[in-house]
Design a protein around this nucleic acid. Structure first.
Lengths: 268, 268
DNA sequence: AACAGCGTTCGTTATTGCTGAACGAAATGA
DNA sequence: TCATTTCGTTCAGCAATAACGAACGCTGTT
């Protein structure tokens, strides 16, 4: 076969692309995947997949169950993920600010970046007087169902925004907003107020308030509080939290080397 | 050039191997790395590295600073790392047992697996009445400086043990044990007592007590408590904790499908 | 203003990775 | 119990693919 897919071909390395594709399939996981099923799903020959898996296994990114022969992600990917966190500038600089905000607001604080059409949580500061809380670092949430996502997308280039608004907007709860126009209105409001809000759009009972963070090259991510609706969106409390979030986001941005008034510049 | 390196060649995919090598370099991180330096360090031509980086970037595993052109790990690796945790059977099954042990012992609990000569923490249950604690999931510790590592290595095949004892044993603190013979004695003691102990060998002030965990195919990892020396290694408390740790490890092993007396079988 | 360093692009070469066919082992069905 | 299918794995040949040297435009420095 010459050109199975007629997309224009970028100068990328095919085998690496395929290797990553395999890692993605394994990360979807479900039940453990066998070689034959993997080969079938990626649509390439069995021996090819085998060679790729052997390579990934030798590097520790994939592990094989010696009993069943099935393949799973290996410990190496966790090491890489951790290294990502430790080299992530936004995350490292946000640590102290997140703690500060968590103390001031007495709520859990999340820091996130945009990857594709999802928001990735890169830091989670626990609520000071909270009970058992599970760590959400690494969690991935559709941008349109959380305050962090809206805070970021609102300051993206217009073209990017249009793409994201045109993309699929699957609802997660009954409160999720799936209408592009309604979302666009919210983004407009985020730009004028400087913060975004979420009301149980990703998890019933939980709300969020977030503001964008900038660095020297522009938009970097977002920071915000997450917690029960009753606490976050009560009248008065609402505005008070928004001010605190926006304030910390601005200071964090300055530490990251953002110019003055990056917010206005991003809109230019 | 024909054979730059005379090692025997396995049937692995070269470009994938190189791509992972690049990811590893980026994870070492330090200051952000440029293309030229990367090419120099891996010893391959600049355009080759460039193509690999472009591919990894398109997949989100690498990101490029648009200002400086330097390369960093991308968010994709965090997503993979998280997927690893969520598909890791030992981890998933250990969640409830770890909580139970944390409650019984009133100490933080770690679950770990062996990767190369390091121990990788795959789960961390906080100490119930603890104050601010940082999450150690993803942390990597030399096997010979922690109870978890000794608990695992003690039940490895003899050949593997010999290799690890022969390898470099860098001391992390003044209490670290760098002598192979002394370590071998400790391993022998672990095998007879069923648990391993650490006294400030990785961090001054911290101690650990751990026991091995088995699944249907043999050794799977280890579980144990970590905390201040004064609390863990006080006379009496010491023995009491060891019993609790061993007990939970045994029950977790059974849930993972280990046969009866896997401990004895591992020694056969 | 000249330089040195960077990240990037291009086109050629043969090295490298891909594939179909075949193998033994294990799981499945009769 | 044996026949049958399905699995993971190995092999060797072909050609597509990835690697490279040379050259480009750019930025920051000397």
């Amino acid at each position: 076969m010459l050109f199975s897919n007629t997309e224009l071909r970028l100068n990328v390395v095919q085998s690496v692309q395929r290797a990553v594709q395999i890692l993605r399939l394994l990360s979807a996981g479900g039940p453990r995947l066998g070689l034959a099923e993997l080969a079938d799903r990626v649509g390439i020959a069995k021996p090819t997949v085998h060679a790729l898996l052997r390579t990934l296994e030798a590097e520790g990114l994939v592990a094989q169950d010696r009993q069943t022969g099935k393949y799973v992600l290996g410990p190496g990917v966790l090491t890489l993920g951790n290294a990502f966190l430790e080299t992530h500038e936004l995350r490292m600089r946000s640590l102290t600010w997140a703690d500060l905000l968590a103390a001031r607001a007495n709520e859990a604080v999340w820091v996130a970046v945009l990857t594709g059409d999802h928001v990735l949580v890169v830091h989670h500061a626990f609520r000071p007087e909270g009970a058992v809380q599970i760590l959400e670092v690494g969690a991935s949430i559709p941008w349109h169902t959380c305050a962090l996502g809206k805070a970021i997308v609102a300051f993206l280039p217009e073209q990017r925004q249009a793409e994201l608004l045109a993309g699929p907007l699957p609802p997660l709860t009954g409160c999720s907003i799936a209408d592009p126009d309604a979302l666009n209105d919210q983004l407009e409001q985020v730009r004028s107020s400087g913060y975004a809000q979420e009301d149980q759009e990703s998890t019933l009972g939980d709300a969020g308030i977030a503001a964008p963070v900038f660095d020297r090259s522009g938009l970097a991510g977002a920071i915000g509080v997450v917690g029960p609706v009753e606490r976050l969106l009560a009248d008065g409390q609402n505005q008070d939290l928004a001010v605190k979030v926006r304030e910390v986001a601005r200071q964090l941005s300055r530490e990251l080397g953002a110019g003055r008034a990056p917010l206005a510049r991003a809109l230019a």
